[in-house]
Amino acid sequence: MGDFITLENVEKVFQVRRRTGLWRRERREVRAVDSLSFTVARGEMVGYIGPNGAGKSTTVKMLTGILTPSAGRLRVAGIDPARERTRLAHRIGVVFGQRTTLWWDLPLIDSYRLAHRMYRIPDARYRQNLDRLVELLDLGALLDVPVRQLSLGQRMRGDIAAALLHDPDVLYLDEPTIGLDVVSKARVREFLREVNAERGTTVLLTTHDLQDIEQLCSRVMVIDHGRLVYDGPLAGLHEAGESERTLVVDLERELPPVEVPSARVVRVEGPRQWLAFPAGQSAAPLVAHLAARYPLVDLSVREPDIEAVIARMYAERTAP
């Protein structure tokens, strides 16, 4: 019962036809998802990440019933998504980050009224959910505004509310903070945490923003080339990928690469140098060391991004 989403050896194979000459075509099999198995418990918040084309969105499409798996077993809330698409639709909420499902020319509230009727939400329940979502997402002043006049952040909040009106058990979010400013991002994250705590909604999040994961998910799954290459806490991901942070140092003038223990210079560009050091290590001693020996102008620390972490993981996994 604990396992709410279950995948057992799920595969998705596409036939890709490529034009190789003027008339010749080549058929090739692409394994977008390759014997993928995992489970997600009710109420978990999981980050699902990977480089573009790794199989992320194919997995989500199979979980939402859009695509049929080529092989394997897949269940969401006990439902086979491919066979019972419409029954599943009542149990899930989906937010596509870059594609709004709100009605462009109509006031926001109209989109919610449509959901009310399309999902057959009981009146009392609808009113209660709407009130709560409007409060949490601060939508009160926006309900009568046509969607086309909303800012990107406001629209995203509107989209998330639309996906939650029918009390779904699972919420799929595809890049929910893409393109949002810092304040909007913080708001969306805060809200997701609250919904998860309040209703026990299971959340599966695909994102390129490492901070989304850091602030929301206790668990991360990394997919690459259609396979699960990591499943565990985010901290472990840094370790597994032996990721490095970067210290960007601006010196007073052009100098030969600086020498510091436990960090190495990876790039020099005029008076600016880039130093890589293990993500688990504090930057403070490094800075102290540098400040004592070199003429510093400015410093900044760059966090590893997901792509870099995964790239490293992958490079190591395939290395002999």
Binding site: K61, T64, G65, I66, R85, T86, R87, A89, H90, I92, V94, F96, R99, T101, M118, Y119
Partner: peptide, 8 residues
Amino acid sequence: DTLLVRPA
């Protein structure tokens, strides 16, 4: 795809 995730 957005139509396929609705209950209709």
